[in-house]
Design a protein around this nucleic acid. Structure first.
Lengths: 205, 205
DNA sequence: CTCTTTTTGTACCATTTCGCACACAATCCT
DNA sequence: AGGATTGTGTGCGAAATGGTACAAAAAGAG
């Protein structure tokens, strides 16, 4: 007889909060925080308001949870890629390919990056969003900086560049791709810009 | 006796529509379109709703007018700077200094660029905003491309770069500065990134 | 079984939102 | 002067908004 984990008292939750967060994020991703209503979130998740409030607190907390999840996923994904022992040119090639795929995904096919696409507008009057965004920007700069330092040490960074100066500019290329995707640019245009960025940051073959 | 311009019939407008648009833009700039209410626009402009509707049409048209004005101002300003006969390094230095000043202005001191800060979020579901944004992005790329072509012809573009590949990446650096400003980055940080960009795109002295 | 705890469905609330109606104001035209 | 045209102030309406109350449901504990 298997000893089951003791369950807390009370009616069990009938939905998976992670899955609900995913669905809510998809709506916020297209419309941004302010233009997304509770009715839309309710429809997307298939949950009534008290269920959403019970799981997440309120609309803002739900949005913040989506921001944090996106940040964590992006940092983990890029951190993992940068930890691989690959030539810088390959690493950046994979980075841009993955980013473009992600920015072009979603039902709108032009959603860009969730943080850049929604938290930037929120930032002025929403301290939580601003803090998550600023932290994300800093982390991306740091990841690029470390990866470029390693590349510089083995002659793979473009000559004349320093890791410290190049890192925020590489971050900038990702920011810009996200913006362009959301503004309707096609994948071919994004790939052309990415190819230029790879050549800009990498030592010649 | 001076022959006055014939006035149209009807009660004259008691406010300057351009000035009102400026004030409305300032509110939209901080909050984005969806989070800005007619009450706030009314308070900022000192005008009642019928006056705003009379002059601009509706909330969306007011926002669109603000986007168009911002686009036109930016393109004129940068186009004018790029038309000057200066070394590329000086041109970019002035460009970034001016951009950082603008992105750090406003009552919030972190407003970034109006188009990047508000139209990107709007883009998915607002075709007018998306079109203005996409047009703006393309114009900036073209301005950079032309300026870089000239610079390349006189050996002022960084070696190994082509104007076509560098232009969208230079645009990217401005996009990123705008985002960072809005995320709360200080001017010193923005200037450091800008200095790195100048070195990245320009031939060494 | 009853009691307690947690969740869900339904209904509701107070407030906000965008846009409109209309009377009055301010002008030009005849 | 009256009529036509355009602008403004006040008030309003229908709908939308984020959040709450509460009864019933679904569980564990004793």
């Amino acid at each position: 007889m298997v000893q089951k984990e003791p369950r807390p008292r009370g009616r069990p939750r009938s939905f998976d909060a992670d899955a609900a967060l995913e669905k809510a994020r998809a709506v916020f991703w297209n419309q941004g925080y302010a233009a997304t209503s509770l009715d839309e979130l309710s429809a997307a998740t298939g949950l009534n308001r008290p269920s959403l409030y019970g799981a997440f607190g309120d609309k803002h907390a739900l949005y913040t949870a989506a921001l944090e999840r996106t940040r964590d996923e992006a940092v983990a994904s890029i951190g993992g890629l940068f930890a691989q022992d690959l030539p810088l040119r390959d690493t950046l090639g994979r980075l841009y390919a993955g980013a473009i795929r992600a920015y072009s995904a979603g039902d709108a096919r032009q959603r860009g990056c969730f943080l850049i696409g929604t938290a930037v507008t929120q930032s002025v009057d929403d301290p939580a969003a601003r803090e998550i965004l600023a932290g994300f920007l800093a982390q991306m700069d740091r990841l690029f900086g470390e990866r470029f330092s390693r590349a510089q040490g083995v002659g793979q960074l473009a000559p004349g560049l320093t890791a410290a100066a190049a890192a925020p500019l590489a971050s900038a290329s990702l920011h810009s791709l996200a913006i362009r995707a959301r503004a309707g640019a096609g994948e071919a245009e994004l790939h052309a810009i990415a190819a230029g960025a790879v050549d800009l940051f990498c030592a010649p073959d």
